[in-house]
Every structure is written in C-alpha cells, then in structure tokens.
C-alpha cells in the first residue's frame, strides 16, 4: 500500500512538473522550464520526452551545448527519432557547426527522403559552408517538391548570386516576392 501511494505521489509530482514547465515556457523562462523537468529525469532517467523537451528549452535559453547534450541522450534513447535529429540541428546551427548539423539532416533524409525541415536545414548548412553549387542543385530540386515555398526560392537566389548568375537570382527573387510580397531581402535585391 505504501509502495502504491509513493508511486502515485511520484506520478502527481511528474504531472506537476510538466505543467510547471509548460507555464514557465509560456512566460519565457526557458531555463527554469527545463530545470523543472530535472525531477522527472531523476526518477525516470530513460524518459525520452523529458530529454527531448529539456533540449528544446535549453536551445530557447541559448544554452546550445547543454541542449545538444540532451538531444544526444534523446537520440541514444530512441535511434529512430526524427524529432531529436531534426532538433539537434538547431543548436548545432546556432553554433555554426554546419558539418555536424548536415550529418543529422542527411540521416533524416535517408529515412524520410522529402522531409521539409531536414532539407531546409541542410540548405542552411550548405549556405554556412559556402557550398554554392550544392545549394543551387539542392534548392532547385526541392523547389519542385515544394513549389509554393519561398524559403527554398530564397536559398536558390542566394546560390545564384554567389555563383555569379544574377539573372537567375533575379528570377528566383521574383518567385520569392510572388509567394511573400513583403520579403525584405528579395525587395532589396530587385530594387538595385
């Protein structure tokens, strides 16, 4: 009976921690929101979602290395997790660790070939690495799968600029403006 009661207390405490964490996140107190999940991880060290959520909150708090540590544990707990592999790219990109981030994007693409987030984040990495020919081919290919997306057109335009193909960059930026009429970067380029 005592064991059962202590188990229930633990469940209620955990429920409390999730709610507290959500409220703190809403108030922009990301580090405290992550901290409130520590009690859950102490009782359930293999709680995948607690690690995933802590990683996200530490990313929001700007503690990128801590965020990466939690994402890596989440990946270790569930190697199939696309969530964790897509998530870890965010703090890696914030630290400009383009190669490491790209590796995770490619691992997602290998399992989910047309995953939008993986492709767009891989484009960000290609831009960070100044791999303009790769970015051009990549953005051009993906624009066929996501024809309504302005981000992909923007990366395509940037690759054209750096490959000294201004006419194609102009066309790509025109496509951006059709999809997002107040896009500052496209407007500035086309007003030159």
């Amino acid at each position: 009976m005592l064991i059962l009661l202590s188990g229930m207390t633990c469940v209620y405490a955990n429920d409390d921690a999730w709610g507290r964490s959500a409220n703190l996140e809403l108030n922009g107190q990301y580090e405290a929101a992550a901290g409130s999940l520590e009690s859950i991880m102490r009782h359930e060290p293999d709680n995948e979602f607690a690690h995933l959520r802590s990683a996200w909150l530490y990313y929001l708090a700007g503690q990128y290395s801590t965020s990466i540590k939690y994402y890596k544990t989440a990946i270790k707990l569930n190697k199939q997790s696309l969530d964790a592999r897509l998530g870890i790219m965010l703090p890696l990109m914030a630290q400009e660790r383009w190669r490491e981030a790209a590796q995770f994007a490619e691992s997602v693409i290998a399992e989910s070939p047309l995953n939008y987030y993986a492709h767009v984040r891989l484009m960000i990495c290609e831009e960070g690495l100044r791999s303009w020919p790769q970015l051009k081919v990549h953005a051009s290919s993906m624009s066929r799968y996501y024809p309504g997306d302005y981000s992909i057109q923007t990366y395509l335009a940037r690759s054209y600029i750096n490959l000294k193909e201004p006419e194609l960059a102009r066309k790509a930026y025109e496509a951006v403006l059709q999809r997002f009429p107040s896009h500052v970067e496209a407007s500035l380029f086309l007003s030159k």
Binding site: A102, A110, E126, H138
Partner: peptide, 24 residues
Amino acid sequence: MRTLAAAVILLMPGVAGAVSAWQL
C-alpha cells in the same frame, strides 16, 4: 515506394552525401 523515393533523393547531386565528415 518509400525506399525508392529515398534512393532517388540520395542519388540527387547536392542533396545527400554532399557534406562529408572530413574536409581535406
């Protein structure tokens, strides 16, 4: 079908395998 799509994407130049772990 999913496997085929993955293979097609992996074969697209500039998409998969574009960023190697080692840069020489």
